[in-house]
Computed example of a mutant assay.
Amino acid sequence: MIAVIIPAHNEADALPSCLGAMRLAARAAEAAGYQVEVLVVLDRCSDGSADIARAFGVETLEVDVRNVGRARRAGAALMLERGAQWLACTDADSCVPADWLLCQLAFAADAVCGTVHVQQWLPEQDGALQARYLARYQMREGHRHIHGANLGICARAYQRVGGFQPLALNEDVQLIAALQACGATIVWTACNSVATSPRLDPRARGGFGDYLKSLAEVAG
């Protein structure tokens, strides 16, 4: 069974696109014979995120932690209890490609670290910011980017290193570091890139949005 874990904090605007893309990826994997369960971890949501998730027919788990590491960890724990053999992680403001899950599984690795790309920049984000971002990003095989928006982990490897730690930032980086330390097989690929939001008011401080904001300040 493949478990998809999506943490969300007041993501009503982004969730429909995220879950619409995930539905296509799940159908592709199910057509290949896999069982797929999608879980949205609602972390202190006060908007319509829960209703949107349920309208898409996906399960929800409510937590009150305002901590992405704790939210991912809680979601993973629930799915592992249900027998998940592969954990696929993305973010509520991101859209995965239709072959996302199949691509992860095809590598037969302990973990798959994928890339992200900005599908549509905001009107206020000028060419200078875009050029600076593209010049620094490694959109290639063998890159060393780690994104919670595009990550897959074998359940056994995940459990071997203790899973996501309850960190407010870089819980994905910590997990991959732990896997590397124990000699896990990790694939770094750009073939299943996930479209993500370029918003500069991210839900998790210090993440991708804040990185873009720092580039905008330099460009400005």
Rank of each mutant, 00 (worst) to 15 (best):
D47W: 09
N150I: 04
A178S: 10
D172R: 01
Y137K: 02
D64G: 01
D13I: 07
Q104K: 09
L129T: 10
D43E: 09
E171I: 11
N150E: 08
V68S: 03
G206I: 12
V65E: 13
G127R: 03
A84S: 12
P198M: 01
E30L: 09
A219C: 14
D91F: 11
N150C: 14
G183F: 03
L101D: 10
G33T: 06
L39A: 02
Y211N: 02
S49H: 04
I52S: 04
C103G: 10
H145D: 14
Y34T: 02
L122K: 06
A55S: 14
L42V: 00
A26M: 04
D93A: 07
M79T: 11
P202V: 07
A109I: 13
Y133I: 03
D126S: 15
A168I: 04
A92G: 07
L105F: 05
G20W: 08
G162Y: 10
V58C: 15
A53C: 04
H147V: 08
I52W: 02
D110E: 01
A204V: 06
G148V: 08
Y137A: 03
H117D: 07
R70L: 11
D126Y: 06
L215T: 02
D51G: 12
L167R: 15
A77H: 10
R144M: 06
V96H: 01
L42D: 00
D51F: 02
G33F: 09
T90F: 06
A155Q: 05
D91E: 05
L215H: 07
F107Q: 07
I6H: 07
Q138N: 10
V63D: 08
A98D: 09
S17H: 14
M1K: 13
E81I: 01
G220K: 11
V40A: 05
A98G: 15
F107D: 12
G152W: 02
A181Q: 12
A74M: 09
G48D: 10
A111Q: 07
G206W: 10
F56E: 13
T196G: 14
A92Y: 00
